[in-house]
Amino acid sequence: MEVEGTASGSTLMIMKKIVEQGWRPVLVVILLLILWEASSRLFAIPAWLLPSPLTIMEEGLSSWSNYAHHLVSTTKLSIVGFVIGTSIGLLIAVLLHLMPHVRQAFYPLLILSQNIPIIVLAPLLIIWFGFGVLPKLFIITLVCFFPVAVAALDGFRQTNAEMKHYMYMAGASKRQVFSKLELPHALPTVFSGLKISATYSVMGAVISEWLGANKGIGVYMTLAQSSFRTDRVFVAIFFIMLLCLLFFSFIIALERFCIKGQPGQEAKS
């Protein structure tokens, strides 16, 4: 097998792979949209109940200037929340890993924190922090930190025993074992957590906006709903999906950049 040496060569290969494998799901989506369009015309479904894809597209294109600032606001909120949430998640994982006793004490609490539905917490957060950015970031953090924390903790714990053994025999300190072995070893698992958190962050942002805000996709959705502009609700849903997808792709790109030397990433000769 020929070895692809240059970076551009491998990028080209990935592009080719996407084109080769990507046409199937694209075709399915197009077919579904045609079916939807056809049935909404055929059965004359009222637009307030289920608008047709073309109506939604039209609305999306024509009123871009009406909702662009909502989009920007939600994107910003999601990114800031994601960064804070995942940083806290990683920090918690590192601390709990390095202090096993603390881990024993706090791990159940960590899981308990996920048993509280966000919606239930919202009134409390608004009482404590008002309608500003703080309660929103709090909600996003709460949904984002957990996948990363759990993934990182598992990754640290599943460190290859033989490699760890080598490190101890070679005289590595606890800190060296962590920074040179456990942390890089856990990276693939951490990235799995980051992918989940990335999509959760958008969801968290939209939910937090529902609960009280003056801008954001969540607000746009609430307004559209109360005026029976179902087409706008769909436009909002579309952009939420797009945002999730973008975040997800960004994490995958970052993963490719950060994780090196794992088999399966490149063609084996």
Partner: peptide, 16 residues
């Protein structure tokens, strides 16, 4: 610890 250098049974090279 760390007084000898050691070659384990499995190479234990770090894949990354």
């Amino acid at each position: 610890r760390g007084k000898i250098s050691y070659t384990p049974q499995s190479p234990s090279l770090f894949p990354w």
